[in-house]
Simulated scan of single mutants.
Amino acid sequence: MKVGAHVSISGSRVSSDDETPPYDDMRNAVHRQLAFGGNCGQVFTTSPQVWAQPELTDEAAEGFRSETEENLEGPWVIHSAYLVNLCTPKDDLRRKSKESMQAELDAAERLGIPYVNVHLGAHTGAGVEGGLDNAASLIDELDVPEGVRILIESDAGSGTKLGGEFSHLAGIIDRTETDIGICIDTAHTLVAGNDLTTPEAVDETVGRFDDEVGLEYLEYIHLNDSKHDVGTHKDEHALIGEGYIGEDGMRAIVNHPDLRDLPFALETPTEDGKGFAWNIEKVKELRDE
């Protein structure tokens, strides 16, 4: 099973014992993933709250690649900065979003990471069709390195944000000439109006996704429970099995024949003394042999 967490790269070193050599920032991610019991996962290459470029030395990139190859089984994915808005009609925000995405794609190539994950963003008045057109044209202006794929993440669907409906995901695939994929966030999918609380509901939702988007585009899953119910459009993650998706829904997701072989990255909170290690172990308990 490919399961892990969104881990931090912060700090000058992470060492579990005196025999472990100092880790630079990127190798912190591998070390933390192992400490949580994960074998794949997600990272920010820099602060997601500001417009900043990844700062990677050759040593850091080479170390991250070798540590990953030696210790992990599943693929990493880079999550783009929160400020990126592919759908925006505003020229300055579009330029900054394009520069940020290009920097992440270049970093992914240096790090040997096959995916860069991004939200479509908000159309802010351009309308759904206009927003999707804006996003597609921006994506097609990017220089995507060989071996790297952009993943569009499903959204909770509040306000003018796009990605909450499967038709938005299908729409961006249809519009772009770039080979893009999809990352489904289970919490976002639930609150956007798709039931995931029972095996029957999961099967129906997966079937609709396949009909509208195509399972061949689904590359990664953000596995999160939700503190809010179906159709509320409120994005707040919960511990695995302790939210509105619940244990039955989570068990159905991680065992579904069309989903079980995909990599799962957790973005769950730390609450009641339960952090990533607890959540990853919970996922493994829900998985059938």
Rank of each mutant, 00 (worst) to 15 (best):
E59T: 14
A60D: 11
A60I: 02
A61F: 06
A61W: 08
G63V: 02
G63I: 00
G63P: 07
R65N: 02
R65E: 01
R65V: 05
R65G: 03
E67D: 15
E67A: 14
E69W: 06
E69L: 12
E70R: 15
E70V: 13
E70L: 14
N71Y: 15
N71E: 08
L72F: 14
E73A: 14
E73P: 12
E73H: 13
G74Q: 13
G74K: 12
P75E: 07
P75C: 08
P75A: 11
H79G: 03
S80N: 05
S80Y: 11
A81I: 13
L83M: 09
C87D: 04
P89V: 04
P89Y: 11
P89A: 05
K90F: 14
K90G: 03
D92K: 15
L93C: 04
L93F: 14
R94A: 15
R95C: 09
K96W: 12
K96F: 10
S97G: 12
S97E: 03
S97A: 05
K98V: 15
K98Y: 03
E99Y: 08
E99V: 09
S100W: 11
M101P: 07
Q102T: 04
Q102S: 06
A103S: 11
D106A: 02
A107G: 03
A107V: 01
A107D: 01
A107Q: 08
A108R: 14
A108W: 11
A108T: 06
R110I: 05
R110F: 00
L111Y: 07
L111G: 00
L111S: 04
L111F: 11
G112M: 01
G112L: 00
I113R: 08
P114N: 02
Y115D: 00
Y115G: 00
Y115H: 04
Y115V: 02
N117V: 06
N117I: 02
H119N: 12
H119W: 11
L120H: 11
G121C: 10
G121F: 11
G121V: 10
G121Y: 09
T124A: 14
G125E: 06
G125N: 08
G125W: 09
A126F: 12
G127D: 00
G127T: 07
G127A: 01
E129F: 03
G130I: 02
L132P: 07
L132K: 10
D133H: 13
N134C: 03
N134T: 09
A135P: 05
A136N: 10
A136D: 04
A136E: 02
A136Y: 05
A136P: 10
S137F: 05
S137I: 07
L138T: 14
I139E: 01
D140N: 10
D140A: 11
E141Q: 15
